[in-house]
Design a protein around this nucleic acid. Structure first.
Lengths: 200, 200
DNA sequence: AGTGAAACGGATGACTCATCCGTTTGCCTC
DNA sequence: GAGGCAAACGGATGAGTCATCCGTTTCACT
């Protein structure tokens, strides 16, 4: 009668059956490899590689985008943890700056993160709660930096996500064979933007 | 025997037959509409809409990317003209700054430009010569600004294309219904970056 | 008007996508 | 441990997209 349970305002699906959980995990692993290689995700192909039926893949992840979201979950959780630590730090500016560096770096080293961080939240049913949590932690970092008088006037919270994703985009454009160099470009571009953001 | 003529180092195809030129133009017009609407380009669909056979479209543009390039040509030529005027201006900094604003704006108002400006030149057989020309004009603008002591140390010419495209990317992410607001975001992000780039 | 090359169109086979439904598996009760 | 039922599975398949090939038409030039 009631396939979903509601607890503390959260809608929770019943736990997966053992075989379903196993298959789901397998599929995510394959997805992770593909995303890492930059290979476009084809759900039929994923099924073949994972050794499961096509329908199994589609049941878990109706679109490639949904699979990417699932792949991104680990990275998002790591960012949330980093943000939790950042809000504990004493200096608002260095906390803000270092956390931004971390987000840029994370996007460059984990290709699943960019599409999730760049997309409108509405399009992300699977990770919305994580993004909300990240967003509220980040808001505190931003507002602390602002309250400390470190931000130039005219800079708003709404500017930050586009700017950060733009920096990651720039770094990915940078003609660089190895990821090392790309990360360096990301830090460099972030320096430029932070320099432009900061009150003087 | 010799289908291509070589003149002054440039490889030139023989002029198109009248019907071919007409069809080509039709196809580009359809492509322009699709790009403007953000509709992904499907060559079969383009053929149907243009009222020509599929093969005709494929003959002129073997890939959607090639059609996008053709659509971008007008915008590129306008940018080149603007760059030619910019190098004539007296103040190196305002010439540099205003031209960057123009590139950002152009990318936001002409959706065909972004993919062309962001892609590695090697992948763009159809527009390489225009991009080269643009690039050499831009190099002069950049070096004039640098020579005038306006650029912070550590900023290189190779940073500029990624930064500019990153700004356009950021502006496109900005949650804005109307393009007016998106252009404003682009100018704002450019201000931040220019502020970060400039020597103090 | 005649001729050859250039360009045309659309039928078609290869390929990708995602659904549907008959079968299997896991979980819970007794 | 057997029985029963819902959950999950797999893969065949119809719908849809892609891009080539080749018989026909159009153009340019004499």
């Amino acid at each position: 009668m009631e396939p979903l349970s509601v607890y503390a305002g959260e809608v929770t699906a019943p736990p997966l059956r053992k075989d379903a959980a196993r298959n789901r995990q397998r599929i995510i692993e394959i997805g992770r490899k593909l995303v890492a290689d930059g290979t476009p995700i084809q759900l039929n192909e994923v099924a073949r590689t994972a050794g499961v039926g096509v329908a199994t893949v589609y049941r878990h992840f109706p679109t490639p985008q949904a699979l990417i979201e699932a792949v991104a979950v680990d990275g998002l959780e790591a960012l949330i943890q980093a943000a939790e630590q950042a809000v504990e730090r004493d200096d608002p500016w260095t906390a803000f700056r270092d956390f931004l560096a971390m987000i840029v770096d994370a996007q460059l080293s984990d290709a699943a993160l960019s599409p999730v961080l760049s997309a409108p939240t509405a399009a992300l049913p699977g990770t919305a709660h994580l993004l909300d949590r990240l967003s509220s932690l980040f808001t505190r970092l931003f507002e602390r930096a602002g309250a400390a008088g470190q931000l130039a006037p005219g800079i708003t919270l709404a500017d930050m996500t586009p700017l950060i994703c733009g920096i990651a985009f720039s770094a990915r454009m940078h003609p660089a064979a190895d990821p090392q160099e790309q990360a360096a470009a990301g830090r460099h571009y972030l320096d430029v933007v932070l320099n432009g953001l900061r009150a003087r």
